[in-house]
Design a protein around this nucleic acid. Structure first.
Length: 151
DNA sequence: GCCAACGTTGGC
DNA sequence: GCCAACGTTGGC
């Protein structure tokens, strides 16, 4: 699951990109970095989640089209998420590329996910501040069914 | 807008 | 290496 504030970057923004692809850069949290660098691979499915709004929700599906590689925005002093501690020889931060796949027929809200015991173990409910987090196969299937999309 | 949770930094 | 201070995230 990838989380984003829609006022910053929304699922519709992803759809409107050329080829529907975008760099998932700017992540500056070590645990999320570890997922981007070590766990996430080309072809992985992504649940796109809108955070920090009235009804936070999973709104659509994306997929990883390039696995973890150094986040070059950290090297650029003019970039918003510049980090002088990240050096090209020893990058501190990583990013992946994602591509728009399709929306859920209806969003699956955070409130709804809290109601389902099958989803009680989700990182989303316990590590709410982690912006990139794992989803189990069972959770993935369950959420797609709630969203009206076949898994 | 408030505030709880929590990741990160820095003093010791 | 501990822990207080601080900053940020994100639900409400």
């Amino acid at each position: 699951m990838f989380k984003s504030e829609p006022s910053c970057f929304s699922f519709a923004d992803l759809q409107s990109r050329p080829d529907g692809t975008e760099h998932w850069d700017g992540v500056r949290n070590f645990q999320a970095r570890n997922f981007l660098r070590d766990e996430i691979a080309v072809g992985d499915g992504v649940l796109f989640y809108h955070s920090n709004i009235a009804e936070p929700a999973v709104v659509g599906l994306a997929e990883v089209v390039r696995g973890g590689y150094p986040d070059w925005t950290a090297f650029d002093p003019a970039a918003e998420h510049f980090d002088p501690q990240s050096r090209r020889e020893e990058p501190r931060w990583y990013m992946v590329d994602v591509r728009y796949v399709r929306p859920l027929l209806r969003p699956v809200t955070l409130a709804e996910m809290k109601l389902h015991p099958a989803l009680a173990g989700m990182a989303l409910l316990h590590r709410s501040r982690l912006s990139v987090q794992p989803v189990t196969g069972a959770e993935w299937t369950y959420i797609l069914q709630l969203g009206g999309v076949a898994g």
